[in-house]
Design a binder for these strands. Structure first.
Lengths: 172, 172
DNA sequence: CTTATTACGTCAGACTTGTTGACTTTCCAA
DNA sequence: TTGGAAAGTCAACAAGTCTGACGTAATAAG
C-alpha cells in the first residue's frame, strides 16, 4: 500500500518527491496555508454579521458584474437555498443590487453597490496583501510552480470553471 | 489603491506577477484547488456519520500517535468543546483509543485502533493520489515552488507548527 | 498539607453554512 | 395557451464552529 522506497515505479525523472511522506507534507501545507489564507477576511467578517459565504459571493459578483444567480450558484458549488439566504442579507443591507435580466427577465443580474464594493475591496485587500507578500518572498519561479500544482489538483470541471473566469474588465 | 501598472514599485526583478489581477487569480486558484483537494475524502465521509473534522483528527493522530488532547487542540486550532464531540464519536466507534498518560495522568494520549488506521489510510490515499498526480503533472521544480509559496503564506505561529511536525517514525 | 493550576470532559445555547424537499411565482418559447 | 425553466420561499435538519459555566482528577506550588 505505502510506497516506502521513495522512487516512483515508472518515469525516468528524479521522482523522490513522490514518497508518501512528501505527499503528506504537501497535504498538511495545504491545510495550514488555507487556514492562514482565510484568516484575515474572517477577522473582518466576524465583526459584522457576515461569514465566509458572504465574502465569496461578493468576490465573484465583483469579478463578473451582472452575472446571474445561476452562474454564481455554479461557480460557488452550493445549493440555491444556501446562496439565497446569503444573497438576501447582502441585498437587504444594500451591498448587492439584484436587477431583472434585460435579455431574459426571469433571470436576476447581480451587481455590487458602492457600499458592497467598498467591503469587497477591504476584504480582498487583506488577502491580496498576504498573497503579494508570499509571492514576493518566494519569487517568480516559485509562483509559477505554485500555480501549476494548484491547477493540476483541480478536476476537469473545476479547472474549466477556473480557466473560463474572465479577466477584470475594469479594475476599479 | 489598485496597482494598474503591473510593476512593483521596488525590487529589481521582474515582478509582473504582482499585479492585482495576478494576485486575484492566485486567490481563486487557492479557492478552487482547496475545494478539489477535500472533495475525495468528503465523498467517503459522507457515507458514514463523519465529516471533515473527523478526518483531520484521524490524520494528526495517525502522524503523531500518543499525542495529547491539548496538542491535538493546538494543531487543529479549534476549541476543546468542538473537538470533544468529534473525539467522543471516534472513540465510541472504536476508531480511536484514549489512554491515560503515563507521565502525567491527567493527560489523555490518543491512538488509532486498527479500524481507525484503516479508515485513515482509505481517506488519505485518495488525497495522496490526487496530490501525487498533481505533483507528477507539474514536475519537481513546480512542486518546490508550490511548497515555498504555501509556507510563505502561513503566519509565524502556523509556520512554526508546520515545521515542528515530526516525520513519520514508522510509515505503517 | 493545603491551595492553585492544569488537563480533560461535559452541558447548555447559539450561529453559520450547508443539505433536502416541497411549493409558488415569473416568464420565455414552442 | 400551455409547458417548462429560472428564481425565490418556507420548513426542517445536520455538521461544525463558538462562548460560558461547571465538575473532576492530578500535578505543582506555597
Amino acid at each position: 500500500m505505502q510506497n516506502k522506497v521513495g522512487i516512483a515505479p515508472v518515469g525516468g525523472e528524479n521522482l523522490l518527491f513522490l514518497t508518501d511522506d512528501q505527499l503528506r507534507r504537501g497535504i498538511e501545507a495545504m491545510f495550514f496555508a488555507y487556514r492562514a489564507f482565510t484568516a484575515d477576511p474572517d477577522l473582518i467578517l466576524a465583526d459584522m454579521d457576515y461569514g465566509r459565504a458572504h465574502h465569496r459571493a461578493l468576490h465573484f459578483i465583483h469579478r463578473d458584474p451582472g452575472l446571474t444567480v445561476t452562474a454564481l450558484l455554479d461557480v460557488l458549488g452550493v445549493t440555491k437555498q444556501s446562496l439565497n439566504r446569503v444573497l438576501r442579507a447582502l441585498i437587504e443591507d444594500g451591498l448587492v443590487e439584484s436587477r431583472v435580466g434585460h435579455r431574459d427577465r426571469r433571470e436576476r443580474q447581480l451587481f455590487l453597490t458602492e457600499k458592497g464594493g467598498a467591503l469587497e475591496r477591504r476584504l480582498s485587500e487583506t488577502q491580496r496583501a498576504r498573497m503579494r507578500s508570499a509571492y514576493r518572498a518566494a519569487g517568480p519561479q516559485a509562483v509559477s510552480g505554485f500555480r501549476q500544482v494548484l491547477e493540476a489538483m483541480m478536476d476537469r470541471d473545476t479547472l474549466r470553471q477556473f480557466k473560463s473566469l474572465k479577466d477584470l474588465p475594469d479594475p476599479s
